[in-house]
Amino acid sequence: QIFVKTLTGKTITLEVEPSDTIENVKAKIQDKEGIPPDQQRLIFAGKQLEDGRTLSDYNIQKESTLHLVL
C-alpha cells in the first residue's frame, strides 16, 4: 500500500502493486475521493509523475507517500 497526502492534509491509503501505472493510481484516487484523474497531479520526491509510467519506474515502494496537487 502507499499513502497519498492531499493539500488539505488528508491522507488516503491505496492498495497498489509496483506494476501499477500512475494512471491506474489516479483512477483509484477517483474511486475513493471522486476527483477526476485529469485534475490530479501526483508528486513524489519533488517530481511530477507521468501517467504512462509505473510506480516501480519511480522507485515508489510500499509505505511511500505521494503528494496530490489539484
Rank of each mutant, 00 (worst) to 15 (best):
T21W: 05
E63V: 03
L66Y: 02
D51S: 08
T11C: 14
Q61M: 11
F44A: 03
K62G: 15
I43S: 11
V4L: 05
P37W: 10
L70R: 08
K26N: 01
E33S: 12
K5V: 15
R53W: 10
P37A: 15
E63N: 14
I43P: 00
K26I: 03
I29R: 00
K5Y: 06
K5E: 09
D31A: 14
T6H: 07
E23Y: 15
E23Q: 13
S56I: 08
D57T: 04
G9E: 04
G52V: 07
V16M: 08
Q61A: 11
I2R: 01
K26P: 00
I22H: 01
K32E: 07
E23M: 13
K32D: 04
I22S: 02
Q1D: 05
D38K: 12
L49Y: 00
I12A: 02
Q30P: 01
T54N: 06
A27M: 13
T65K: 05
F44S: 04
K5I: 15
T6G: 07
E33L: 15
Q61S: 12
G52A: 11
Q48K: 08
L14F: 05
E50W: 05
L66P: 02
T6W: 14
D20C: 09
L14P: 00
P18T: 09
L68K: 00
K47S: 10
T8Y: 14
L68E: 01
D38A: 12
P36W: 06
G46K: 04
Q30R: 12
K5A: 07
V4N: 01
T21L: 10
V25W: 01
S56W: 07
T65M: 10
I12G: 01
Q1P: 11
K5F: 06
P18V: 10
T6P: 04
H67W: 09
K47L: 13
Q48P: 11
E23P: 03
K28E: 03
I12L: 10
L55R: 00
D31K: 12
Y58N: 03
K47D: 08
I22L: 05
I60F: 03
Q40P: 02
I12K: 01
S56E: 14
D38N: 11
T8A: 12
Q1S: 10
D57H: 11
A45K: 14
V69A: 09
S19T: 13
P18F: 15
Q39S: 08
A27L: 14
G52N: 11
R53H: 11
L14R: 00
Q30A: 14
I12Q: 02
T65W: 08
T65P: 03
N59G: 15
K47T: 14
P36E: 07
N24C: 13
E17C: 14
G46A: 04
E63P: 03
L68M: 08
T65H: 15
N24I: 15
K5L: 11
I22K: 00
V4M: 02
R41A: 08
T6C: 14
R53T: 07
T13A: 10
D20M: 10
N24H: 14
I2S: 01
